[in-house]
Design a protein around this nucleic acid. Structure first.
Lengths: 168, 168
DNA sequence: TTGAATTTTCAAAACTTATTGAAAATAAAT
DNA sequence: ATTTATTTTCAATAAGTTTTGAAAATTCAA
């Protein structure tokens, strides 16, 4: 397969993949494009490569920057802004974990904690089931939370190396 | 907080949570409702509780069943079908992991393997970057894949117990 | 069988989210 | 200070997704 075709294939699949994870297709595609580009790109480059409008590129790029996945780069002597993506996939993953934990997991755990203290007779079947379900989810979420904390603090070789030994 | 209010709160938050993970709001809400119900519910129960149409309940319920998260239950002497959700959150999580791995991760890894064999000069910056990025993602994905395999085969106490010790 | 209860389907409508493109704002060069 | 290049914003529109509801299909009982 030729490079151009392979790139297109990767960008398209990565975009489709993203939509299963609550990320919009275009954002994932821009990210994919930057991931496989040896050099930083301008908004115009992205517009041309993906055939999308300037406003679209601009907004999604901002979003990628706010997720910490893309950086603005100023090339000396150039008027235009350039954009580049972190290429180390471990860093990408920990960055995403960090953000999603903050935006989604932590607030959910906080809510579950409150809901666990629902008032009412603990002998009532519905109340009992509610408390059991909520506390089950909270405990599980708490463990996941701890594990992700260690993960984002660890460095790749340590983490994957250890896990690998651990799981044979 | 009263039980009714707490339930409503949980169902609504779980629905919002779901949308961040590529799951539609209603499916997540039906799942939440079944998770906190002490007894199986009919389509009519769900229609009433969530104030949604019959067709909507029916389609999302099918989907939940295909994900292995909900079961049909036939109560003796009853004409209607009842539905119930697996309450053990570890089982729920491993079930979801198993399905998403099969539907998303495995095909992606297969694609990356193919893309790694792109033809072209490995000294060309673009080709080099492409191969490096793709193989980086593939290696990382491969590790994740292995870890998830162990997880879905393990049982909760073993897995979380071991991880907990492992991560202090 | 026939008829009533129940479930399933799916085209149309409602709703949600993403995209465009042109105008406004900003920044740099002359 | 003015012109020119570039980026940002956002109302309008397009595209995509979810929901409805009524008709068709199925299931069960008499």
């Amino acid at each position: 397969m030729k490079l151009t075709e392979a790139k297109a294939q990767f960008i398209s699949s990565w975009g489709a993949f993203g939509t299963h994870w609550g990320i919009n297709r275009t954002m994932a595609q821009i990210h994919a494009l930057l991931l496989v580009s040896a050099r930083p790109l301008t908004q115009d480059d992205v517009m041309e490569e993906l055939d999308i409008s300037r406003g679209n590129v601009n907004m999604n790029m901002r979003d990628l920057i706010s997720w910490g996945l893309v950086d603005r780069v100023l090339l000396p002597g150039e008027r235009k802004e350039y954009f580049t993506a972190e290429k180390d996939i471990w860093k990408v993953a920990t960055q995403i974990i960090k953000e999603r934990k903050k935006r989604e997991l932590d607030p959910m755990l906080k809510l579950l904690q409150q809901l666990e203290n629902v008032d009412g007779d603990k002998k009532d079947a519905d109340t009992k089931q509610f408390i059991e379900t909520i506390s089950g989810i909270r405990k599980f979420g708490g463990q996941a939370d701890k594990m992700l904390d260690v993960m984002v603090k660890a460095d790749e070789s340590w983490f994957l190396g250890s896990l690998l030994k651990f799981f044979k």
